[in-house]
Write a protein that binds this DNA or RNA. Sequence first.
DNA 1: ACCTGAACACCGTTCAAGT
DNA 2: ACCTGAACACCGTTCAAGT
Lengths: 209, 209
Amino acid sequence: MDLIVGTALKILDEEGAEALSLRALAQRLKSSTATLYRHFTGRADLMARVVDRIIGEMELDRAETATTSWRQACRAAACNMFEVLSRHRNVAPLLGDHIPTGPNAAASREHFLALLLANGFPPDLAARAYALLTRYVLGFAMQLRPDPAATSREEAQFAAAAHGLDPARFPATAAVADSLPVPLEEEFALGLDLLLAGLAQLRDRAPDA
Amino acid sequence: MDLIVGTALKILDEEGAEALSLRALAQRLKSSTATLYRHFTGRADLMARVVDRIIGEMELDRAETATTSWRQACRAAACNMFEVLSRHRNVAPLLGDHIPTGPNAAASREHFLALLLANGFPPDLAARAYALLTRYVLGFAMQLRPDPAATSREEAQFAAAAHGLDPARFPATAAVADSLPVPLEEEFALGLDLLLAGLAQLRDRAPDA
DNA sequence: ACCTGAACACCGTTCAAGT
DNA sequence: ACCTGAACACCGTTCAAGT
């Protein structure tokens, strides 16, 4: 039932990953845990459906795909993936549990691969570029902390600790303390641009055209 | 106690993340759960110490650091990080829970930053390069499945599913089905090389020298 | 002073019993 | 046929009671 998946996602977003127990879910639905098992084989099955639901939130058909370069389209798609995962940061870690196999995952993959193939990537390089970019996005998204407020607090603590280090024992860290810690969202964009530039060169060197 | 952390790591490696309960740990140590709380404030504290333990396994002082280019040294360091996390793949996800603050984490960071600073990276770019590379490695390592055997099975199923897709509905996926799924370990190396090439260019364009 | 059995408030999952 | 309370075998954490 879509209502169950939606309610599970709401609990995940509003109260965090540890708040989503089958008991809490049943309670919100005014049902019982045993009844939930009539719709899903177990917790893992439910989680896989939540994952496909948020993959469905990713926008594939931005106008840019047709009107801009493949690089800008890839960049936009990757950033959009990252944004959706940021909105559901408690769900992102679940993406790593299994290769997504739901209908939305299949549609997303098809769209991305079609974009690459239409822009001169040979099949093998298209598959590798797709895998690299999606794994890059997911890897960064998984490192987003659940709670933005707690993140700021931890970053502030870390920055203070970096400045308080003994410069004799940690000269290099002390020298760059003003730049630590580097915000994850910024870093994501930098690495993405470097990867896209590298993939562009690989494509230009490839046999096809 | 180091013995407790070592035993926890052994359970993690041998039996998986879900097998590590404080009860199981106490049993292996022939103690009780309540006694464990005399050494750690709680589960989170224990996990943070396990994390710093495996950071300590990473080799920082390979001979290459002195004799080869910074790019090869960075590449070796990143690959070594990835290898250590692969050996302890049930621990890798824990690295994302908090910014590592243990002594081994501090030593590793210092070493990496010193390498970059010694090779002409301005402080701000050194911090960003360090953050990017460590996040890249951890992001990929977090996507390693716990059980290699289960991974192979899932990959085989996925490959079969990709070949069985309707080519009319999924033409692009069908066209690259022979190349799916791309092994994560291979993909890691490709992306790493692209990032290092990009960072080299950024450094050469930077004001310092 | 140090340790621990037992309790507390949870979990995912199952099933006999009710409607 | 469909649903569910209650049970089962677990968790992390705490604390009174023992040595």
